[in-house]
Structure formats: C-alpha cells, structure tokens
Simulated assay, not measured.
Amino acid sequence: MIEQTWLLLALGAVCASVLMLGMWLLQVRIHDASHVDVAWAFGTGGLGVLYAVLGDGSTAHRVLVGALAAIWGGRLGTYLLVNRIIGKPEDGRYQELRRRWAPHVDRAFFVFFQAQAAFVVVFSLPFLFVAQDRDTSIGVLAWLGAAVALASIGLVSLADRQLAAWRADPANRGRTCRSGLWSWSRHPNYFFEWLHWAAWAVIALTAPDGWITVVVPLFLLYLLFKVTGIPETEAQAVRSRGDDYRRYQEEVSVFVPRPPRRRPTRG
C-alpha cells in the first residue's frame, strides 16, 4: 500500500507538471497568466478523481473522494473560467507580476507555473490518503468532515454570487462590495475555501497516516496571509478603490466572518 501511495503521488506530480507546462506555453503565446488559476482548480480536482479511480482503498472511500473532488474542482474551475478568463483582461495581480519580473517575464512565469504544479500535488494529498483507506465503512468523523466540506463549497459559491450581483449593478462601480457575506469578511471566499481544506484534513484523520494532511490547511493559511492571497488582493483593491477600500479594511474582518465594526458617528 505504501509503495502504491508513492507511485500515485509520483504520477500526480508528473500530471500536474505537464499540465502547468502547457499553461505556461499558452501564457507565452497570449501574454495572459490568469488561466493558471483555472488549471490549478481543475488540476487539483482532477487528481482527486484520478486517485479515486486508481486508489487501493475501499469503494466507499474512493467514491467519497471522487465525488467531492469533482464537485469542488468543477465548481471552482468553471467559476474562474467564466468570471475571470473568458472575455476578461489579465488579472491585475498577474499584470503586477509581469511588471515586476520584466524583462525576464517568461522565465519567471515558468518557475511560477511549476510552483503551482507543486501546490496542486500538495493540495491533493487528502484525496490521496483517503482514496487509499481500506476501511470498508466511513466513520462519523469523516462524515462530519464531508458535511463541512460540502457546506463550505456552498458558502464559497454564495459569496461568489453575491459579489457578481454587486458588480453587475452600474451604481456600484468603483465601490467595495458590502453585500451579504462580504459585510462580515473582506475575503469570505478565502475563508470558506480554507474551511473546505480544514474539513478534508478531518476526513483524512481516519486514514492511515492521514494526519500528515493537516499541513494543507496550515500551508493555505500561510499562502493566504503571506504570499499571493490577501496581501496581493488587498494591494490591488487599494490601488483601484482607494479610500473606499481603506474604510472597508477598518470596518470589516479580514478573514473570519463576524459582525462589522461600525465607525462612530460625529455629532
């Protein structure tokens, strides 16, 4: 079983690297790196389905992995493709990276895209460990984690719809979304995405050596707060919306949803 786990992990790494190589070549041709996010979502979910098909675990565990991975990856990848790629200019974050990395843009993006391939492999680890679980029954802890994972997917989708509805109103142009979940967290999509991976760490705890997957939500927190998540997103928001977004930062929680802080009125 251990040998097959390593073989599946190696296969996943090769698939992810080849996928991101293709995306990098596309970037070289069209000068738009935004599609890397779509590839990351479909690639991670796709590895989950691959592990579910080839895994050595019980049918119940492999069906659980395949179904949840397909739902998560299909929803996120499709959302990003429709709302961030088709008919849209390159994402502002990647435009900024393109500016910083000149004149060696393609070389820098090659490293960046292969780093994304490594992230695909890391985030697919819970799928791999659960797909290798030979226990014929799914325990209460795993069912609880699966319920939280599904709820998180639904809440991320809700946050995306609320943001899309806000942006569709011309009266909101240049203003920060404060609708629904966005009035309780500046990044509800990030929070519920993190909660989804925390739930997968709970599911994997029932699998042999599944405790290792705790690194996934911890790693995601690091990425969100220190690398390309919240810092880059908020810097871009301040550049585009200025004082309106600065007021939003003062009033609304950065991550965990909670009631907004109301600024005192001056008498």
Rank of each mutant, 00 (worst) to 15 (best):
Y94G: 11
A146P: 10
I71W: 04
D106Q: 12
A151G: 02
R62Q: 07
L64C: 08
Y79K: 02
V148A: 09
A115N: 14
V53R: 12
S124Q: 02
G87S: 05
W101Y: 13
V122R: 04
Q114W: 07
D160V: 12
H104M: 15
R161C: 04
V156Y: 00
T59F: 09
G77N: 09
I153T: 05
R161H: 10
Q162A: 07
A115Q: 14
R161K: 12
R99Y: 11
D91W: 03
L158I: 08
T59Q: 15
L144H: 02
Y79C: 01
L150P: 03
S152A: 11
Q95N: 11
G55Y: 07
F119P: 04
A149L: 06
F123K: 02
I71D: 00
E96I: 15
A164Q: 13
Y94K: 09
R134Q: 13
E96F: 14
A108N: 15
L128Y: 14
Q132D: 02
V121S: 08
D135Q: 12
I86G: 11
S137V: 11
G77Y: 02
A118R: 06
G77E: 03
G154A: 08
I138N: 10
W166R: 09
Y94H: 13
D133I: 00
L81T: 02
V111R: 08
D56Q: 15
R93H: 08
A69M: 12
A115M: 15
V156W: 00
L155P: 06
A147V: 11
P103S: 14
A151M: 12
L125V: 02
R75V: 06
A70K: 05
D91L: 08
R107I: 07
H104W: 12
A165Y: 07
H61N: 07
V121C: 06
S137Q: 10
E96P: 07
R167I: 00
R84Y: 13
I86R: 13
G154C: 14
I153F: 05
F110T: 09
D133L: 00
A60P: 11
V120R: 00
A117E: 00
W72R: 01
G57P: 01
Q162S: 01
G92Y: 15
H61G: 05
L128F: 13
Y79N: 03
Y79T: 05
